[in-house]
Design a binder for these strands. Structure first.
Lengths: 221, 221
DNA sequence: AAATATTTTTAGATTAGCTTAAAAATATTA
DNA sequence: TAATATTTTTAAGCTAATCTAAAAATATTT
C-alpha cells in the first residue's frame, strides 16, 4: 500500500500532466504540494523505484499505466465522497474539497463499491466533473464554455472549470448551480462580458472570466 | 492538530484505563498498538508535553480531561462511522471495525455533526456500544450479561462485550443480533452453558463464554 | 557564444515514529 | 532479604518526509 504522501504525489503528477501535455516538472509538483523542489526531487527518486512513473534527471516525470490507475482511482474516490457530502450530508459544493481530500485516502475497495451503489452510481460530482469508473474510464459529455455561446443561444450549466471556493460562492450568490438554464441576451464586445437570463427569470451580467469558467450543454434556442 | 499516531496512543490509553482502574502501563499500551515498549516510552515522553496525560517514569500514565475529551471524541467518531457503514452502506457488524478505525481520523467537526444528524442522532453503534455525545457523555442503559439470566427468564440482546470478528460471525450463524429475544430454557451446571430459545422459534446451546459476552435487557418472563 | 536567469539536484540536517539490545528500576518469589 | 523475574527506560540507529543552502544543469537573453 502507498502512503498518503505517495498518493498525493501521484495525484499531483496526474493533475499536472493532464494540463501539461503528459509530463510534470519538479517545480510544478513542489508548488502543487506546497513543498520544496528539493523534497520533490528526493521523493521522485525514491518513488520512481515503485514504477508509478518514469523519471529522468532534469527531464521531469510521466506516469506509467500503474500510476495512472492509482491516480484515477484516487480521483474516483475523491469525487464519490464529494457526492456523498453534498447529496447525503447537505454540504454545499464549495465546502467539500478539503474533506474529500482526507476521505479519498481511506483504503477499501469494498467501501468504494458500496458507496458508489449507495449514491446511485453517479457519473458526475457536485462540480460536474466526471467520476471515473472502477477501470478508470471517464464518461465524456457534450459541453462548451459559456463564453462560446452567442446572443440568443441557450444552455444548461453542467460544470465549472476551476473550482476554487470564491468562484463557487460567487455562483451561489448569482443563483447559478448545476442544472441552471442560461440564455445569452447580449454580448458586450468592449470587455467580453455577457448579459444573461437565468432560469427564464432573472437578468445578470457575467464577466469574461466567469463565462470561461462555466461549462454548459447547449440547448435549442 | 494531533497526528493519527498520537490519536491512536490517546485512544489506546483511554481503552486500557477504562478497564484498568484509571492508569495504563507501558507494556499494555505497546501490546494494544502492536509496537515495542521502547517506542511507547519514547512517545509518552514526547506526548506528555502536550498535556493529554500525566506521565511519571515507571508509574504509567493517566489521561487529563483534555486527553479524555480527545479520546471520547474519537470513540464518538468511530461509532458514528460504524452506524453509517452498517445502516447506510449495508456492511455487516463484523466488517466495520477496521474501516471505522480509518474514518475516525478524518478531521472535521462539521462533518461529524452532519453525519450524526443524517444518521438520526443514534445513541448506540451496531454492536450496542453507546455513542458519546459531542460533550463526551455516554447514554447508560439497563443491561445484564446473559449469563446472569436464570431458567425461564427472557431478555433482548442489546450489545456484545468483546467484538472480535469470529465471535460476531458465530452470532450471525446462530441467528443472534441486536434485538434478538432470548429465553433461557435451561442452565447446565456442568459447564455453565445454557439452553436458549431464540425469537420464540429456534432452540440453541450457548457456552458460558458466549453467554458472558452477550448483553441483554431483561424483559418480563 | 557568453552572460544571466531559472530549474533541478546534491549535501547535510531535522523530526516523528519505529527498531533492537542493553541497562536500570520495580516486583515477585524463595 | 537475597535472588530472580518482569517491566521500563536508555542508547544507538533506521526510514520517510521534510527543510535550507549550495552546486550543477538547463534555458533564456543579449
Amino acid at each position: 500500500m502507498a502512503t498518503e504522501t505517495e498518493e498525493n504525489y501521484i495525484k499531483a503528477i496526474y493533475k499536472i500532466t493532464e494540463k501539461n501535455q503528459g509530463s510534470a516538472n519538479t517545480n510544478a509538483i513542489a508548488q502543487h504540494l506546497s513543498t520544496s523542489p528539493a523534497s520533490v526531487t528526493d521523493m521522485l527518486k525514491r518513488l520512481s523505484e515503485k514504477e508509478y512513473f518514469h523519471y529522468e534527471k532534469y527531464k521531469g516525470v510521466y506516469l506509467t499505466s500503474k500510476g495512472i490507475k492509482m491516480a484515477t482511482n484516487l480521483v474516483r474516490k475523491h469525487r464519490l465522497w464529494e457526492v456523498f457530502l453534498v447529496d447525503k450530508l447537505g454540504f454545499s459544493w464549495d465546502e467539500v474539497h478539503d474533506l474529500a481530500e482526507q476521505l479519498e485516502h481511506v483504503d477499501s475497495d469494498d467501501l468504494i463499491k458500496k458507496l458508489d451503489d449507495y449514491l446511485g452510481n453517479p457519473k458526475y460530482d457536485p462540480h460536474g466533473d466526471p467520476i471515473p469508473n472502477a477501470e478508470g474510464k471517464f464518461t465524456i459529455r457534450n459541453q462548451v464554455s459559456l463564453q462560446s455561446l452567442t446572443k440568443g443561444e441557450k444552455g444548461v450549466v453542467v460544470g465549472v472549470r476551476e473550482h476554487d471556493t470564491p468562484f463557487l460562492q460567487y455562483l451561489n450568490q448569482q443563483g447559478i448551480s448545476l442544472g441552471t438554464e442560461i440564455k445569452v441576451l447580449n454580448h458586450i464586445d468592449f470587455d467580453h462580458s455577457k448579459n444573461i437570463l437565468i432560469d427564464n427569470s432573472s437578468e445578470k451580467v457575467l464577466s469574461q472570466k466567469a463565462c470561461s469558467n462555466l461549462f454548459v450543454k447547449k440547448s435549442s434556442s
